[in-house]
């Protein structure tokens, strides 16, 4: 699965957990406003229902997204109005 950190990141630390196991740990994550994208990363997920937890300790935010890995090839996560929001897509998100 591909996870894209999209809008609202500003020099943030970001951790991503799949079913409780940390799969991504990045610091200084910042949205490129030209694109609406901060970071795009491939993560390994098992088949079936998956709990993907995204933590942003620098903003004291955390949210778990329940997805079906067979339906969801792409997860986009943004910070909007002080909340983590996610969108899913079978097609890869494109940026311009």
């Amino acid at each position: 699965m591909r996870i894209d950190l999209q809008e609202g990141f500003s020099n943030d630390a970001v951790e991503v957990y799949v079913n409780g196991a940390k799969v991504l740990d990045k610091e200084g994550v910042t949205t490129k406003r030209m694109l609406g994208l901060a970071l795009s990363s491939e993560i390994d997920v098992p088949d079936g229902a998956v709990a993907i937890e995204v933590k942003v300790p620098t903003k004291n935010l955390a949210k778990t997204f329940a997805v079906e890995s067979s339906d969801t090839a792409n997860l986009g996560v943004s910070i909007h109005n002080g909340e983590l929001k996610g969108i899913t897509s079978k097609k890869r998100f494109g940026y311009a």
Partner: peptide
């Protein structure tokens, strides 16, 4: 460098990703 990007107006301030 980021394959998800189909086009970019690269000529902007570094803070915006340019």
């Amino acid at each position: 460098e980021e394959p998800a990007v189909g086009g970019i107006m690269f000529d902007a301030a570094a803070t915006f990703g340019g």
